[in-house]
Simulated scan of single mutants.
Amino acid sequence: MNTNHIDKQNQHLDLNDKDVQEVFARYEDYAEVPYISPDRDIQTWLSAVNIGSAHLVPKRNMIRLDEDILPGYLILLWRINFGTFTNESGFPKYFEYDYGINAEQALEEVQQKGYAIELSATDSLTYLNAAQLKAILKLSGVKGYSILDKSGLMEKTKEQLTEEQLASQFTIRGYQLTEAGKELLTKYPEVIDRHPKKKY
């Protein structure tokens, strides 16, 4: 049984389960078995693979890079680099089914490795709309903002409220690549080039 790097993503699996064993058999010649979510209906997925309506994760996506991360992590960094990814963004199924990674875990790891950071409340104001910004200002007792557009509201908020005050007002936070994260994307352009593109 292919248990290479099982501790990285799949330590939650019961290796004595026959369905799990069948999944591992499918990936026997891979560098490691792709992430299998606890929520996945393994029997249904195996049936779909057998009739050809589902596919295996490409073998190349399960080969770790020099940095001990999988190619799917680069797709997450690429996604973050658009500036629209937040702690409220969902993770598309392709992270698990095409790249074989636990995207939620990957998000934690890229921060731990210094490739991305979570923005402060102040730097995350851009993810709020004008009505939300006005509500924060009103609640904080700030005056003179009624005719301001979103840009002006953001500036007013930054001028009048501290990071500590803002942090308790809303929970959404954006993410940003560090220089190391940007360099990593530049190092492996072929991974990004193969990924289907759409605007974010």
Results as ranks from 00 to 15, higher is better:
Leu185Trp: 05
Lys59Asn: 07
Gln112Gly: 00
Lys138Asn: 11
Leu15Trp: 02
Lys59Trp: 02
His12Pro: 06
Leu15Pro: 04
Glu32Cys: 10
Thr186Cys: 03
Ala103Val: 09
Ala135Asn: 06
Gly152His: 06
Phe82Asp: 13
Ile51Ala: 00
Gln11Cys: 13
Ala25Glu: 14
Asn2Phe: 10
Asp19Gly: 13
Glu32Thr: 09
Glu164Thr: 12
Val23Met: 14
Gln132Lys: 15
Thr171Ser: 15
Leu133Trp: 05
Ala31Gln: 14
Phe95Tyr: 15
Glu28Cys: 04
Ile6Met: 11
Phe24Thr: 03
Thr126Trp: 07
Glu104Ser: 15
Tyr175Lys: 11
Gly72His: 03
Lys8Ala: 13
Phe82Gln: 11
Glu183Gln: 15
Gln111Tyr: 00
Ile63Arg: 14
Pro189Met: 06
Asp41Val: 02
Tyr145Gly: 06
Glu104Ala: 15
Arg26Asn: 11
Leu119Thr: 13
Gly100Phe: 03
Ala25Gln: 13
Glu88Val: 01
Asn10Gly: 05
Ala121Met: 05
Val20Ile: 12
Lys187Phe: 06
Leu161Arg: 00
Lys8Phe: 13
Pro92Glu: 03
Lys187Tyr: 10
Gly52Asn: 09
Gly141Met: 07
Arg26Phe: 08
Asp19Phe: 11
Asn102Cys: 09
Glu96Gly: 02
Tyr35Asn: 01
Leu153Trp: 03
Thr178Pro: 11
Leu177Trp: 09
Tyr145Asp: 03
Lys199Cys: 00
Glu22Val: 04
Glu88Arg: 12
Lys143Ala: 12
Lys134His: 07
Glu159Ile: 05
Leu46Tyr: 01
Ala121Arg: 08
Ser124Gln: 12
Leu166Ile: 07
Asp98Cys: 04
Val49Arg: 08
Tyr200Asp: 11
Gly83Tyr: 09
Glu155Tyr: 11
Tyr35Met: 02
Val33Tyr: 01
Ala25Thr: 11
Asp66Trp: 01
Gly72Val: 06
Ile42Asn: 01
Tyr35Glu: 04
Lys59Ser: 09
Ala131Val: 12
Asp149Ser: 09
Lys18Thr: 15
Leu166Pro: 08
Lys134Phe: 08
Glu32Lys: 11
